[in-house]
Design a protein around this nucleic acid. Sequence first.
DNA 1: CGGTACATTGAAGGGGCTCAATCCACGTGG
DNA 2: CCACGTGGATTGAGCCCCTTCAATGTACCG
Lengths: 257, 257
Amino acid sequence: MASPLQTAADPQHLIEPLTQKLSGVIALTAEERAALAGLQVPSRRMPRGREIVSAGRKYDGVFVLLDGAAIRYRALRNGRRQVLNLVLPGDFIGFPACFYEAALYTVAALNDAVVSWIPFPTLFALLQRQPRLSATLFCCFSSEAAMVGEHLIDVGRRSALERVAHFLLELLTRLQAIGQAAERSYRMPLTQELIGDALGLSMPHVNRTLRQLREDGLVIIDGQHVVIEDIESLAALADFERGYLGRFRIADFLDPG
Amino acid sequence: MASPLQTAADPQHLIEPLTQKLSGVIALTAEERAALAGLQVPSRRMPRGREIVSAGRKYDGVFVLLDGAAIRYRALRNGRRQVLNLVLPGDFIGFPACFYEAALYTVAALNDAVVSWIPFPTLFALLQRQPRLSATLFCCFSSEAAMVGEHLIDVGRRSALERVAHFLLELLTRLQAIGQAAERSYRMPLTQELIGDALGLSMPHVNRTLRQLREDGLVIIDGQHVVIEDIESLAALADFERGYLGRFRIADFLDPG
DNA sequence: CGGTACATTGAAGGGGCTCAATCCACGTGG
DNA sequence: CCACGTGGATTGAGCCCCTTCAATGTACCG
């Protein structure tokens, strides 16, 4: 089944997760909102498992994930796989690889997802006309880079228990930011095998670690349903600081429009 | 001893490592070179060990490393430390943390270093007037983010031997790009302890791993002097692809000026 | 000459991996 | 309606890579 190309009947709706994300960084003017809405980007449905970006191919633009979830990963020659990050609605797909001759990583849909496509000429024209959006985009890219940085700290210098705890808390915070998590619970989009590939652990050990967290009364996990029982203790265990997911301060340096 | 503030008597010279780096992405016009040279940024000498950026503090701009070397790292509560990346001349200091309320990581000079300071208003004004430079900067940030990404793959899914091999090759490539390495040799700017903090290994094991690489005839290490004996075998061992350090392709999408 | 920083090497222990079996939920077709 | 296949979760046993702890070596410097 070929993925049907949806006509962008309602571009305002389609680009909305991105607009919402950007407006969390600076207060967007009406003109900027109009410029974003005017992008007229087509959206495309991607079935579960489909590769949205394939490592080694080249792309003349960036994708934005509008609905669903995806993972960015690299498959190594020895059969192992490292998941770099989880892509959630509003996130760009293609950074930082999009400017390279060949994509560095593969991005695959975790479940049925919707993505839109912004060609480079369109993107650069937008940024040239709306310099404040350009600065905001720097912030978004910074945020993604910071998440990979925290991820590196996780994998490099934390125990399995600390890693999983940190992972669960980061996911809670990110999902809350886009309204897909309650105060202490959410739906886990990854299998235990993928959690292992993200955290540099084997699947059996992910399972054992989750069991330990459960036995310690820190989390409840039933299938995909995750409940954080004791956020304080979990955050202490994981040395979790949500600063890197938080607010930016460039608004002070930009003209109001 | 307070760090002496140098008068920017020769800004063209001072900003040169950055200009050289940017001109590796796109061919800079005379106007763009002049705009960069006109930045009039003061440079400052940082003695070995000095913190250039301290985690938790806030900064109203970015630094550019002009000479020397530095590490970006996070010190964890449990006393451990993770080095995120090595900062070399021409690299920005402050990305991705610079847009946050508080710096996420600490950046410390490895040896006597020279940095320049670009306040946000100056930077944003430059980018607004020179949109091609803005796009080029996106590429530079992409490159830094990609290096952290590769670093994550290294630490998450490779053995100690593969990690160290990959690390040595990445360093060779990066130092060559700025003319600080010969075809197969360079001066190692990090101690074995710091290599361990970068690769998620203990110092004794870094030592043993280096010895193994030496015994296998892949590298020669004598103090700070590193010679890659067998690049092919080392690259095969490390699964090293230099693509992420390589060329960009945004030039096609930008007007020549 | 003593102190500091870094490199080197050994011994012992543990955290996480590998390999393997089992279980369960679910969908699908006979 | 049940047999079967499949994807994922769960659990166990054994082992190995890497850590921790510790001692020693060595160059450099005040």
